[in-house]
């Protein structure tokens, strides 16, 4: 039995400690906003925040997250997260949408640590999140827009 703190609420999970956080959150807790795209930390679809830092939940064993604050897209409501979501809407970033919660979480993590990134920093940091619809042009603009709004 593991106790996870997700979006401020405690969840008791009966699962082996090596189970990836992604599948525990999706299939056992039932929060479906965090997506599976590759399972090997290559695509960023499963990005969520752990103690405010973006992490790939597909390769993170449950045991490594006990006692830490997990934030998923469903619980993203801090100032930075709000600014990111607004910028995403203003620029109409999503197409199919499947990668987008991961993109939003990665952008929030980026701006939480680095409130005024350069364009190159935005491009490099967001390069961890694949979007096969290739919404990258707007992703980069939206991160910039959110950074400006927060400044």
């Amino acid at each position: 039995m593991q106790i996870l703190t997700i979006n401020g609420a405690e969840h008791r999970i009966d699962a082996p400690p090596e189970m990836p956080l992604l599948w525990a959150i999706r299939d056992l807790v039932g929060l479906k906003g965090t997506k599976y795209g590759c399972g090997i930390a290559q695509c960023g679809a499963c990005t969520l925040l752990i103690n405010g830092l973006p992490q790939r939940s597909c390769v993170l064993p449950l045991s490594a997250t006990v006692g830490r604050a997990i934030t998923t897209i469903e619980g993203l409501d801090d100032r930075v997260g709000q600014a990111v979501k607004s910028a995403w809407a203003e620029l109409a970033v999503p197409q199919c949408g499947y990668c987008q919660s991961g993109q939003v979480m990665a952008a929030t993590g980026l701006l939480s640590r680095n409130p005024s990134p350069t364009d190159a920093e935005i491009a490099d940091q967001m390069a961890g999140n694949i979007c096969r619809c290739c919404t990258y042009h707007r992703v980069k603009q939206a991160v910039r827009r959110a950074a400006d709004a927060l400044a």
Binding site: K32, T34, K35, I73, E74, G97, S101, V104
Partner: peptide
Amino acid sequence: ERKDLWPKIDGTAVFTQ
């Protein structure tokens, strides 16, 4: 505005998965 805009930003859009 796209009708699927917000569900695809806030994670509520439902996919087969």
